[in-house]
Design a protein around this nucleic acid. Sequence first.
DNA 1: CTAGGTGCAAATCATTTGCCGGGGC
DNA 2: GCCCCGGCAAATGATTTGCACCTAG
Lengths: 150, 150
Amino acid sequence: MNSEDFLGSKQKYRMTNQRQVILEEIRKVNTHPTADEVYKMVRKRLPRISLGTVYRNLEILSTRGLIQKIGPVSSQMRVDGITKNHYHLRCIYCGSVKDAPIDPTENLENAIRERSDYNIIGHKLEFIGICPNCGKKENLSHKKAEDIGN
Amino acid sequence: MNSEDFLGSKQKYRMTNQRQVILEEIRKVNTHPTADEVYKMVRKRLPRISLGTVYRNLEILSTRGLIQKIGPVSSQMRVDGITKNHYHLRCIYCGSVKDAPIDPTENLENAIRERSDYNIIGHKLEFIGICPNCGKKENLSHKKAEDIGN
DNA sequence: CTAGGTGCAAATCATTTGCCGGGGC
DNA sequence: GCCCCGGCAAATGATTTGCACCTAG
């Protein structure tokens, strides 16, 4: 689960003021802000910060495991002709998506229903990993962090 | 799980030729094509189709439950200050994300490891539902399909 | 005739990048 | 000096939308 391990990132980052403030603001709230919301929050303390800086730092902070990105694992929508619920397997290197060889279970939804007041209508489970094909390449040469989705 | 049930969509759609071809092409492959890939596939049979039409029809087809969208449930990335793995609860109406009151399990990953040759490094589980607040509104007036993410 | 459909181009939205000056080590 | 950094604006990429025409019922 720790990105650092497989990213082979050799860079050393400083904890700059902007970076620190961004991190503090994210930790301060118990919501899951969008990049733009983070920008707005941070700007109250650092009025001259730019949105680009926020994005750059969110990227770095999540690479370092200090925060976590939710949502778009890769930026493109994909479609699936099979409508019955099933799980997916996504490769962090090539971004490909395959069906996971495991059947969905109602148990998960039931567990949530007991504990929350949401009207649950479904769930999405996605496994993140490295596909055999990319796994080979990975052993030969370490890819740069930028090549990797999420 | 069937979108039609809660979307309250009153529109009547025709199964036009373009729509039909798009659906056929998606069903023909066992991959999970992006919108652009669908466009390319369909264009072999309907050279004059536009990307806009593809998007419009993917939207309609998934609203009708004939295909399924994977990935970006809503299009914006969100961040999370809590780095230990946990699950999320997303409201289809307002798009808000909360932490799910259920602890992650290694079982899921282990199940996959036994059955696939992927190097699994994590998993994401997201419950889709209607938050109590939006649930109230929903009862008062049925929202239009466009208001609903995914 | 009315509503849904389409192609096309322009617009929008989130995110990324290039440039360039500045500061830490 | 080298490299990371941040502000800014411009670029990019995916998706959406406005417009004008078309066609089925």
